[in-house]
Design a binder for these strands. Structure first.
Lengths: 207, 207
DNA sequence: ATCAAAATCCCTTTTTCAGGGGATAATAAA
DNA sequence: TTTATTATCCCCTGAAAAAGGGATTTTGAT
């Protein structure tokens, strides 16, 4: 059996080293390279022709989300596994939409990484969301409200400091409508003013 | 020369592996252990008697900040190096106040880690703040306003959704005073309403 | 001892928010 | 096709925040 060629992209040398060390223990995996920025990633893929790219989501300048899109466009056969701390839950769906096949938390064990690589290599999806979360973390995830797209728009504009009339003008809707969305946001987040709303939204990486 | 005994604490196995691999390349360092939670750390220090503990700041349940305090109380001779992504800048001062001797970003290179360990072992302070920051990150750091302790209190209460009258009651000060602090916060953050204020404060890990 | 900064308090006016109510098309899901 | 959701619009009231002005007393640093 040919080894699965894996390229790792992360801006933290420490994580790269960790991945390198962990992947070295998996016999069916060959680490064909590690890259510390999304800039070098595309070039490296061209040269090293990996089967799977494991990439951090949070990177300066070019995020893992954009990188996933680029990879899917230029190298449709290359599978992408996104990696991050559990906190960036809201980014995961974007990552999947951009063609990623898997999601790993950075607290993943060697076994999980192994499973993720195998699953993704076989064309399946792999998600390691529920693992390694503390009880409070899980509860937090469950409490993240589901917003409509319009509500998301309004939320972002609120967070950027726009007043209701300004938001109404921007979205070409009535002031009353903005007010309704705003009320619904407060209800969905079970808070009673803007400060709490934005604090929570920030914690969930929605703003 | 005796090797410097180092214990690493981090809840991400990947980072632990990375540190282990990087420290293994430094000849004057002996990794006497790695621990994946602050709970085990104290016990391990007792058994392994490290010279230096390198600990992540962000850990579930017990943070690195609390851990640093515990270590300084129970093992005053053990030096502590705090480690995190650059984002938690606001925690650094707390870490230092709690007796940490150094600060490493997770994007630190082997050389930086080497230097940090040496410096701290010799009783100096080591800070790796300005390294590996992108231009925009640096600019952001520069723009982080310096708040008085009172302002921090007020900011936290605002973020928790308390109104000015409630804050006044909690802090035993006049409503007018709260209002002044609030105005000063808006000025210092160069924003013009609460939503923007909390969004920024959240980004700077102040709430 | 002096100066600067921080923290405190006071006032006014305009604007915005919060919370309450309810209603109607359009769309998506069952 | 019926139901539920979403997005839209409207009204009201009182509370709170934004923005402007200014003043005094602690506290900390030089």
């Amino acid at each position: 059996m040919n080894k699965i060629k894996v390229l790792v992209v992360d801006d933290h040398p420490m994580v790269l080293e960790g991945m390198r060390s962990m992947l070295a223990q998996i016999n069916f995996v060959h680490i064909c390279g590690t890259v510390c920025s999304a800039y070098g990633a595309v070039e490296s893929i061209k040269q090293l022709t990996p089967d799977i790219v494991i990439t951090d989501i949070n990177m300066p300048e070019i995020s893992g989300i954009e990188l996933a899109l680029k990879i899917k466009n230029e190298f449709p056969d290359v599978k992408v596994i996104a990696m991050s701390t559990f906190k960036e839950r809201s980014y995961i769906s974007q990552m999947i939409q951009n063609g990623a096949s898997g999601y790993l938390v950075k607290s993943a064990s060697k076994e999980e990484i192994e499973e993720a690589i195998l699953s993704v290599y076989e064309g399946k999806l792999y998600m390691s969301l529920d693992i390694n979360l503390s009880a409070t973390d899980k509860q937090e995830l469950d409490n993240i409200p589901i917003l409509s797209s319009r509500e998301k728009e309004v939320l972002l504009l609120i967070a950027d400091g726009f007043t209701n009339p300004q938001i109404a003008a921007k979205l070409f809707i009535s002031l009353h409508t903005v007010d309704s969305h705003r009320k619904n946001l407060l209800t969905k987040f079970t808070v009673n003013n803007t400060a709490s709303l934005i604090k929570l939204a920030a914690r969930y990486n929605m703003v």
